[in-house]
């Protein structure tokens, strides 16, 4: 495994850093939902732009892996492109946009619509790993709360929402309980994606670079979105199917078409949408949507 880019190590990180991160990953898997502190390194991209996910991916990645990178569900958003290029350059690995072909999927803000399979690894970029952070800003306090499994604060917050609005007003980064023990931040994915974490066949790894934490959900692990008996957890629903591929029960992005209220709703997961269109599914606006939204039916 020779360096692909002169002067840098395979996948950028030096071996000692990789070992440190690998040890943290193993601990994270053994204690599902617990945030393992790690000495996060400066990366050549800024904190808050995926350094945690990048360090995790760099530490697990091997020459035979096939990498997919998404941001907002799309392979072609600028930050996803930049991270994919980084690994192409420093590790020379194969990359793909097809969820099913990937061995490692690094993501920001979405879980792919297509269920992940055994042997796949989903790496999340995490800005604020501490689910209790906005209720209690001090690490010393939140660490004790986790040690005691004292999560009353979170329930109080959710219940205050219900009292005020009639339902929980958290729409993304919706807290979950992992394997009946730790309350965990699923990263700012819309709560629509929370059910996909439950008993997933894939290993889910979470990296927070600036906050120096790694955590994990092993495959086949119960992940429960916090709720109340009289106010069960519910995900977002969309009135109309995707305007391009007619998919229902998927997360849709709202695209503003003009300044006269024209809107269309399209799949946030671009690979999912393109795969459906390639298979002949046609949404109501497929013929009329602007080219920069509809794109081509497939791309490599």
């Amino acid at each position: 495994m020779t360096p692909v880019q002169d002067g840098y190590n395979f996948a950028y990180l030096d071996e000692q850093t990789k070992r440190m991160i690998r040890r943290a990953i193993l601990k994270a898997i053994a204690i599902p939902g617990y945030q393992v502190p790690f000495a996060s390194r400066e990366m050549p991209m800024p904190y808050g732009w995926g350094t945690g996910g990048v360090q995790v991916t760099a530490s697990i990645l091997g020459p035979d892996d096939v990498l997919k990178v998404i941001d907002q569900g799309s392979d072609d958003t600028t930050n996803a492109v930049s991270i994919r290029k980084f690994f192409k350059k420093t590790a020379g690995v194969a990359t793909t946009t097809h969820t099913a072909e990937a061995t490692i999927v690094q993501t920001r803000h979405r879980i792919p619509e297509e269920p992940l399979g055994a042997g796949q690894v989903l790496v999340y970029q995490v800005p604020i790993p501490e689910p209790l952070r906005f209720l209690e800003p001090r690490e010393t306090e939140t660490r004790t709360l986790h040690a005691l499994a004292e999560y009353g604060l979170m329930h109080v917050k959710l219940y205050e929402d219900i009292a005020r609005h009639g339902h929980v007003a958290t729409t993304y980064a919706y807290p979950v309980e992992v394997a009946g023990r730790y309350v965990m931040d699923p990263s700012p994915t819309p709560k629509f994606d929370n059910p996909k974490m439950h008993m997933s066949a894939a290993l889910q790894l979470f990296g927070a670079g600036r906050e120096q934490r790694i955590y994990a959900v092993p495959p086949y692990t119960p992940v429960k979105s916090l709720d109340f008996e009289d106010h069960p957890f519910r995900i977002q629903t969309f009135k109309d199917p995707c305007a391009l591929c007619a998919a229902e029960g998927v997360y849709l992005d709202e695209v503003v078409l003009d300044d006269r209220g024209g809107r269309m709703m399209v799949c946030s997961d671009t690979d999912f949408c393109e795969t459906r269109r390639a298979a002949g599914h046609r949404g109501a606006m497929l013929g009329t949507a602007p080219a920069e939204i509809a794109g081509e039916a497939s791309h490599g």
């Binding site: 800024p46 808050g48 732009w49 941001d71 930050n79 803000h109 979405r110 994915t189 819309p190 709202e254």
Partner: peptide, 13 residues
């Protein structure tokens, strides 16, 4: 500065 990155999925929610 990461606030410059797209957040449209969460904004949609």
């Amino acid at each position: 500065e990461h606030l410059k990155l797209p957040h449209y999925v969460d904004f949609q929610a």
